[in-house]
């Protein structure tokens, strides 16, 4: 799973991914992060309708071992969260880029996405942290 970083996504150094779709972005955590965390058992999801700045803490993700903050990858208003994660948080481990998505954000500044890492650069970044 580690090293599984789809090319059509952008990544943060704090291990979120985003898929920009026009003026909106879908985000989650990378396969690298979900593997490092281990079995995810609970997520405190961002608040729908609330505006978060880039790198602001907008939720928490709890695995058996530990809790970590979720950081907002791009500035904007959270317009939806993945409520399926309430009942099945393990989707973050099973399908981090699919059914394990976390939030949909209406972007304040779509150009901000250009500053995020591309897949190859993010893969390099995770290698250095292994």
């Amino acid at each position: 799973m580690a090293g599984d970083f789809p090319d059509d996504l952008r990544y943060t150094e704090s291990d979120e991914w985003v898929r920009v779709e026009g003026g909106e972005a879908v985000s989650g955590i990378s396969a690298f992060a979900s593997e490092q965390l281990g079995d995810v058992v609970y997520l405190q999801l961002p608040e729908v309708g609330k505006r978060y700045g880039r790198t602001e803490v907008f939720g928490e993700i709890e695995s058996v071992k530990a809790v970590s903050d979720l950081f907002c990858p791009l500035s904007g208003e959270v317009i939806a969260v993945n409520e399926e994660l309430d009942a099945t948080p393990g989707l973050v481990n099973e399908e981090p880029y699919g059914r394990g998505w976390i939030a949909r954000i209406r972007l304040e500044n779509p150009a901000e996405a250009e500053s995020l890492l591309e897949a190859a650069a993010y893969a390099q970044n995770t290698t250095e942290r292994h």
């Binding site: 281990g38 079995d39 058992v41 058996v64 071992k65 481990n93």
Partner: peptide
């Protein structure tokens, strides 16, 4: 070893 396949499993 902290885990092999996953803590819950």
């Amino acid at each position: 070893p902290i885990q092999y396949t996953g803590i819950i499993e």
